[in-house]
């Protein structure tokens, strides 16, 4: 099943998805007026886009309607699509650095995020993908806090045929990274993927710990190419933007993995994140199987959002 089909099938399962409503609203109106815009604004908010970005999109469309003298409400649909696409454009088809431009030295991927977004699962899927591409992968078990997190990651590492570096529950995660980097160099690995414990962005001490992990990695692997990814749950609401912002400020992010898109949530929150932080979406998670991690394609994503849904 292609990514597009998978997204569509997810969308079909909801009776009230965003586009069904957009079309309903547009059909109701004969001419373009303030009321139409107000209703469209509401629909955008419902898809978790967030008020600010929703308003921005509507204002942009209003401007265009004025300058291009659009009178047909049906035109609005196309314009909305274009507008969202443009916001996501910067993040279209961005493959991982270690795949597009592999480093001569070592590629390191650091995966961060709050609790329960799917970091460990995403790492497993990424490792398997990299392994399929012929990369020699090693994984560092940096979540030394949550019970059985190490065991969980180990299962995924085995599935992906990747080497696995672990300490014990409660160990200093920076020390795990230190060992993992040494092992990666000694064993001649191409890519090191670092797991971290889920942490709420509001916990100052835990964010400091993350900064330390980041510092140690940069110090120990000076010539490596480092890519930092945040994992975001598609079902989350406006708080995901706050999360991304906090992690971005702490260590600087290179990309987003949007997980759990196989449910009924549309992940509209990434439109908001892309606009406000300009962090590209790299992958989306669409299931629990090892190959259910797909490259994000903004056009497909918007198309899937706007697909007519038979009722």
């Amino acid at each position: 099943m292609s990514f597009f089909d998978k997204l569509k099938s997810g969308l079909k399962k909801t009776k009230d998805n965003m586009v069904g409503k957009i079309d309903d609203v547009i059909k109701k109106f004969i001419k373009i007026d303030e009321e139409l815009f107000e209703e469209l604004l509401e629909i955008l908010i419902i898809s978790d886009i967030g008020y600010e970005t929703a308003e921005y999109i509507i204002e942009e469309i209003k401007d265009k309607v004025k300058t291009k003298r659009v009178t047909d409400p049906l035109e609005i649909r196309k314009m909305l699509k274009e507008e969202i696409n443009q916001i996501l454009q910067s993040s279209s088809d961005k493959e991982l650095k270690c795949i597009k431009h592999p480093s001569d030295d070592l590629d390191i991927i650091i995966v961060v995020g709050i609790n329960g977004t799917g970091k460990t699962t995403s790492i497993g899927k990424m490792a398997s993908k990299l392994n399929d591409l012929g990369k020699k992968v090693i994984i560092a078990a940096g979540d030394t806090f949550r019970a059985a997190a190490i065991e969980q990651l180990e299962v995924w590492a085995n599935r992906a045929q990747a080497d696995f570096i672990k300490h014990f529950s409660g160990a200093d995660p920076s020390a795990v990274m230190f060992d993992a980097i040494n092992a990666a160099y000694k064993r001649g690995k191409n890519v090191l993927i670092c797991d971290t414990a889920g942490r709420l962005h509001t916990k100052k001490n835990l964010m400091e710990e993350l900064k330390k992990i980041d510092r140690i990695i940069q110090r120990e692997a000076m010539n490596a190419q480092i890519e930092k990814l945040i994992v975001i749950d598609a079902t989350s609401g406006n708080n995901a933007l706050v999360q991304a912002k906090a992690f971005h400020e702490a260590i600087g992010l290179d990309g987003i993995i949007l997980t759990k898109l196989d449910g009924t949530a549309k992940g509209g929150i990434i439109i908001n994140i892309c606009r406000q932080l300009q962090i590209p979406v790299k992958y989306i998670g669409v299931g629990e199987k090892i190959d259910d991690l797909r490259l994000f394609n903004s056009e497909e994503f918007v198309d899937a959002l706007f697909e007519e849904v038979p009722r």
């Binding site: 419902i46 898809s47 978790d48 709050i114 329960g116 749950d233 079902t235 989350s236 609401g237 406006n238 708080n239 995901a240 449910g263 009924t264 949530a265 549309k266 509209g268 929150i269």
Partner: peptide, 8 residues
């Protein structure tokens, strides 16, 4: 999860 958005 208290952070769930509209999909809750």
């Amino acid at each position: 999860d208290s952070m769930t958005g509209q999909d809750a």
